[in-house]
Amino acid sequence: MYIAASLAILVTMGLALARALSGPTTYDRIAAVNMHGTKTVLLIAVFAFLSGRTDVLDIALVYALINFIGVVAALKLVEHGNFHTSDNYDGDVKEGEPK
């Protein structure tokens, strides 16, 4: 059943990857990357049990944190760095405009 579970997770990763590739907005991509990261964490956790080496779980643990840091860094930039870059950008928020 580990095998079935990891296959299903791989399928989900593929779906998330497809969304990350197709966009259409940058936010879709970030969200898909985030989901892909979560699924990678789960895949590694399942794989640790599949191969019986549970010390690999440390890596899943690190991922769970790193993935979050990456997403927050991306968003920090989106929010503060005048980074209104949905690919079909049509807003007109000016730099330095108060939130």
Binding site: L17, A20, L21, G23, T26, R29, I30, V33, H36, G37, G70, A74, F83, T85, D87
Partner: peptide, 11 residues
């Protein structure tokens, strides 16, 4: 899109 590229580097 450079930003999307960076996100894909993460993946």
């Amino acid at each position: 899109n450079l930003f999307a590229i960076v996100m894909l580097f993460g993946i």
